[in-house]
Write a protein that binds this DNA or RNA. Structure first.
Lengths: 219, 219
DNA sequence: GGCATTTTTTACTTTCGAGTAACATAGTTT
DNA sequence: AAACTATGTTACTCGAAAGTAAAAAATGCC
């Protein structure tokens, strides 16, 4: 029924290690898989436990409750993204180039279970304090994105009437990748991402390629 | 707690009309409002009933069950969109122009409760037969969109490496509008939509405006 | 007014899944 | 080996919300 199983440190046989942290991560991964597949409310902890060859109360040994599990999934997903901002940030790169590589990382993230959790599950599912933390992280990401747009406008590599809206639109467009029914084939996925980003960069309207170099926007 | 109330043919006083169809629509509208606000699972029929000054079993008089209610909301939302395809379809319009006005209608639709239901709620919430019908309608819309892209490529008004992916990306980008926290101010909303579509049409990279007329892509 | 039909309510059953208490077992320490 | 700690399980409670049965009220018709 389930796809390829999330690897589990619990063997049915009794060769279990006592590595709490690893097991906690395994619980998180299994939850992320299921949350991202069927959404928060349809996901049952019994099912998460079943995937791990464990019973439900075990999950409560590692996480306070279902919401804490969701929070950790979303937070983890968003932090993967935030962490990716750093990187060789040579001054030679134009704002557009930096933005493009950021978008590419963003898109790849969304192909993961944690990424899809972060993107597809509304923070309304969470209690107010948790939701606030998540919104805070998302606001940071939005700010980063907006800053890149502004930088690109400054150096002439990006045209935008409104960085606020542009940043939102970019994030929104990429988020929809979380709904794409992807094949296992990684090549196809990467191709989709590239096409996607090309569309955002070049737009629908044809460009005049006569005066531009053929590889206008290489990575 | 709730925003402006969906208008209801039930008055608390006994001046009720016996127009079953009207009441059914009112039930649908109230459900759409709540589904689009809090999602399917968090929405309770008691709450829907409360909004209408009615009790829960009344809803069952108009709809078989909760799922039928959701199905009707989504179907209605999508049909509003499908219906908008027709229109003065002069041969003079370029593929891009037709696509743009379609996108604009699409975007406006998403500002409605039904539209947000159709766009934000996964069809996985539905039973297999219902889900199948919805996917069918969505596939039709996707086909229309793709056809416009192909037409635009043929007449030179659109550049795209892959109409399939382009159509998906366009729909995805617009769908994210369903998550924009909008003000009541209609002007702002329209402005956002215009910016949004401009981004998709013109792209992030600056264009050479030297040879183009200032209003390259008027509606 | 009396009778049938439609519409709505009150009061209930049912189901599902989150969360818990209390016990069980394995490994570790002394 | 006894006692302690970490990890899991069995078997339960509990609440929320879907869904239903049957009575009740409104409406229309003669």
């Amino acid at each position: 029924m389930r796809g390829k199983t999330v690897s589990s440190p619990w063997q049915k046989a009794p060769e279990r290690k006592q590595q709490r942290a690893l097991k906690r991560e395994a619980v998180l991964a299994a939850a992320a898989r299921i949350f991202s597949e069927v959404g928060y409310h349809r996901a049952s902890l019994d099912e998460v436990a079943r995937v791990l060859n464990v019973t439900k109360p075990t999950l409560y040994y590692y996480f306070k409750n279902k919401e804490a599990l969701l929070f950790a999934c979303i937070e983890h997903g968003l932090e993967m993204l935030g962490g990716s901002v750093e990187g060789p940030h040579t001054a030679a790169e134009s704002g557009l180039q930096r933005l493009m590589s950021y978008l590419r990382r963003y898109a790849r993230l969304i192909e993961t279970d944690f990424g899809r959790c972060a993107v597809r599950i509304s923070d309304k599912e969470l209690s107010e304090p948790s939701s606030k933390k998540i919104r805070r992280i998302k606001a940071d990401i939005d700010r980063e994105l907006r800053q890149m747009v502004v930088d690109g406008m400054a150096d002439g590599s990006i045209a935008s009437a409104n960085p606020q809206i542009t940043a939102f639109a970019l994030a929104g467009a990429l988020n929809s990748l979380g709904h794409w029914r992807h094949r296992e084939d990684q090549t196809v996925t990467d191709k989709i991402i590239d096409e996607y980003i090309s569309l955002l960069v070049d737009g629908l309207a044809p460009r005049d390629h006569a005066k531009a170099k053929p590889d206008r926007h290489t990575r």
